[in-house]
């Protein structure tokens, strides 16, 4: 079965979805990603879906789940490169992914992720001080 590759970039994990997201592929990604976050002590996950033309409610929900799981494992998720048609479809399906940060492209996504993670570390340090 085809799997979506997960690349490591320092503290971040980069996932570029280049194939059709079948349900099983999506579930495998969810599985792999959570494992990799723990293994690599990743602080952030960047999911690039610029090659994704079609989404359904299952894929939308899976993306939301992946973000929530990453959150629990103390990693921020940023979703980048969504196509206009995909955005419209998701909104029409009632999936607005309120808990995921989004950015237009990978470049902006990385800078957003850096800011988020730094912010997070600073917040945590502040908490330790108390």
């Amino acid at each position: 079965m085809e799997r979506i590759p997960i690349l490591r970039m320092g503290d971040f994990l980069l996932v570029t979805i280049q194939v059709d997201m079948h349900d099983r592929v999506a579930l495998a990604l969810q599985d792999d990603l959570t494992n990799r976050i723990v293994k690599n002590h990743a602080r952030g996950v960047l999911i690039d879906i610029s090659a994704l033309d079609i989404v359904d409610s299952f894929i939308g929900r899976t993306l939301a789940n992946i973000a929530s799981m990453a959150r629990i494992l103390d990693a921020q998720t940023v979703l980048v490169g969504m196509q206009p048609a995909v955005a419209i479809t998701l909104v029409e399906l009632g999936i607005s992914l309120p808990n995921i940060r989004t950015a237009l492209n990978v470049e902006k996504g990385v800078s957003l992720l850096r800011a988020e993670v730094e912010n997070n570390i600073m917040e945590r340090d502040a908490n330790y001080d108390i």
Partner: peptide, 12 residues
């Protein structure tokens, strides 16, 4: 609100 949600998904 739909338009707002769609724009947010695109990172705006």
């Amino acid at each position: 609100l739909k338009t707002v949600a769609a724009a947010r998904l695109m990172g705006a």
